[in-house]
Amino acid sequence: MEQENSQTISGTTSHDSIVDLSCHYQFENGSSQFLFLDFDHSEKNGTFLNHSLSFSVESFVQTLASCNGLILLSGYVTDQSCYYVVNPLTKDSITIPQPCIQEHVIRVGLASNDYNQFKIVLLEAKSSQLMDGNGLEFHIFSSDTSEWSKVNHFVDLTFPPLPEFEFKELSTQPLYSNGSIHWEIDGNLLVYHVEEDNCELIELPNFSKDWAWQSTMMYRRCFCESSGCVYYCYTDFDGFHVWELLKEDYDLGPFSDSETFRWKLVHTVMHESFASTHHEFRDTLFEWEPLTPI
């Protein structure tokens, strides 16, 4: 059975109107194909398959994160778990062994700059028996040193229980923006400032006490960036909603406190309105041939 995952990655062209979308297709034989679509907002129906960036792999891999044109994958080398950092533009890939993990890795992130220097960040949930209170152990791989390091941070949240551990495809893809990695964890936004090595926890606008089971429903969420601002997008029973993450000192008025609620609703589209306006909406299909494995 063919499975599909898709995520937005940073644009690789010099045109501001073009955005790239990466689609990961997994096949029954364990192979994968990565297709890149260019969306040109300056042209009507301007959606194109970018053959130069698209590639395929013969072994089983999973997409974990993307940042500044690099893609982080997980896979195996001689039955040993590992990570791959792939550059679709050059088709270069780097294999990185996984560090020693004692418990659950609940989130993975990727940070990189314009010079293809990168860091992989793993969040390991530590039990109260190993740490005094709720704690996260950050395992950080740096391309500068080619080594793993680790640091502990205490956070006031409940770590994701099942079924999220069992169904990782239901979790939200991380976002790297403004020098920080953003993760959704149990109805909260965890922001890790990579260079400063500190983190902050922000409650999401659609926070729910039953978050673990809500994430298994058909509703989907994602983070995105535009003009240096971070946005949180999600669907619910009513429609589509887009919230902007605000700075701590942002003034929401006399009846709001940006220190406790850091979001501003910027757009909502009801399902009924979307269906009536886009009744002829359909996906664009592309004809493509198998690509040469990297």
Rank of each mutant, 00 (worst) to 15 (best):
L49S: 08
E103M: 11
T260Y: 13
Q98N: 09
S276Y: 12
D210V: 08
S6W: 15
L201G: 13
E244K: 08
P99G: 07
F55L: 10
Y84V: 00
L122C: 08
F138W: 10
V230I: 13
V194H: 05
L157W: 00
P99K: 10
P97Q: 00
P97H: 12
F237V: 14
Q80V: 01
E196S: 15
A111Q: 10
C199M: 13
L123K: 08
D38F: 06
H24L: 07
H279I: 10
G179T: 04
V86D: 05
I120R: 06
S276T: 06
T8E: 09
D79M: 04
D114F: 11
L246H: 03
E248S: 03
H241G: 00
P97E: 06
Q129S: 13
H241I: 01
S215G: 05
N68P: 04
F34T: 09
K126F: 04
L170R: 07
H271W: 15
T277K: 12
G75Q: 10
W183V: 05
F255V: 13
V269S: 00
P97I: 01
S66F: 07
H182M: 02
T8C: 06
N5S: 12
H139E: 02
V242Y: 04
E272S: 12
Y250C: 11
D186T: 10
Y232F: 14
Q7A: 12
P160W: 11
S112T: 02
P254F: 01
F39M: 04
F55D: 11
L170Q: 04
T13E: 07
R220D: 02
L246F: 01
H267R: 14
L49P: 10
D156W: 14
C100N: 13
N152R: 02
F274K: 00
Q117R: 12
N134C: 12
G179K: 01
H267D: 13
Q214P: 00
H139S: 07
H279K: 14
A111S: 14
I181F: 05
F27C: 05
L49F: 08
L89R: 14
N5K: 12
P99S: 14
F138D: 06
L285T: 15
I185D: 08
E203W: 00
F154E: 15
Y232E: 00
E244Y: 04
Y76T: 07
